[in-house]
């Protein structure tokens, strides 16, 4: 203990710096607008009025519903289409597969917003604005390269002899994939679901363009709108931000082991 005091000191400072902003949001959200005490001070009396107002006026519950639908749709497509494409990439070693892999890695680097003009005018032409499927397809496409990369690294570590045994028994490619490969994919699928889920839940750039009607707003757009309208009522805005981040913080604390594992899987080069 004595020898390690400096470690505890650094750790304490880190924890303080990393928790301070989150603490400030919650402390502010529990104080009325008229409370002029420092934002650092914990409320002397808990005040729930900001939350009442947020739930009544901001449409945050509808936004959470919208975000759930969009996130679920995106995750399902990314998992299904991604694992499918990863199978030949991991198993066939030829020029085509290699080129597809390079292409996928390239797409992973592209800043989605750089081609927003092209995507937006295409979405207009296929009437995809203000639709769930429009934003889901866009998010899923940009998430796809990452999931293909994760799945193909993982499948490459599944012994080929399993495929060969199944084929010896007369199973076709599709049956081999569904019955032999898919059941092995559970751990990497957890990582893909969590990382893609958080990414889509927090997405803002494309949502701004695709979801223009208030009824279609997701969580980030709703928080932005609330902050825009509540210029003076920052305590109300803090409550709105708190409602938006509580679900994801709870999920993170419950599943943090899997989140860290997912981050590791995605960073280790295959």
């Amino acid at each position: 203990m004595k020898k390690n005091w400096w470690k505890y000191l650094i750790a304490a400072v880190l924890v303080l710096i990393y928790l301070l902003p989150v603490y400030v949001v919650f402390a502010m959200s529990l104080k009325p607008m008229t409370d002029m005490s420092s934002r650092l001070r914990f409320p002397s009396e808990i005040y729930w009025g900001n939350f009442e107002k947020v739930f009544r006026n901001s449409g945050i519950l509808r936004a959470i519903g919208n975000s759930l639908i969009i996130t679920a749709g995106t995750v399902i497509i990314v998992v299904a289409v991604g694992s499918l494409a990863a199978y030949p990439m991991a198993r066939i070693q030829n020029r085509l597969s290699r080129n597809i892999k390079i292409f996928i890695m390239g797409v992973m680097m592209i800043p989605g917003m750089s081609m927003v003009v092209g995507i937006y005018s295409m979405l207009v032409s296929i009437h995809a604005l203000n639709t769930y499927w429009g934003i889901i397809l866009v998010s899923a496409t940009f998430g796809l390269p990452f999931s293909i990369y994760m799945y193909s690294n993982f499948i490459a570590s599944v012994p080929r002899s399993l495929d060969e045994a199944a084929q010896m028994d007369g199973a076709g490619v599709v049956r081999t994939f569904v019955e032999i490969i898919v059941p092995q994919l559970k751990p990497v699928t957890v990582s893909v679901i969590l990382l893609q889920g958080v990414g889509t839940w927090n997405e803002y750039g494309y949502s701004l363009y695709v979801l223009q009607r208030t009824e279609m707003y997701n969580v980030t757009l709703t928080v932005k709108q609330y902050f825009g309208e509540a210029v003076r009522d920052l305590n109300g805005a803090a409550a709105c931000a708190a409602v938006a981040i509580i679900p994801i913080i709870v999920i993170y604390l419950l599943l943090q082991k899997y989140f860290v594992q997912g981050a590791l899987d995605s960073s280790v080069k295959g």
């Binding site: 880190l14 924890v15 990393y18 927090n202 928080v223 981040i245």
Partner: peptide, 12 residues
């Protein structure tokens, strides 16, 4: 704690 902010949207 250090990994926590990654969960929160950059906008928020």
């Amino acid at each position: 704690v250090v990994y926590l902010p990654i969960m929160i949207s950059g906008l928020i």
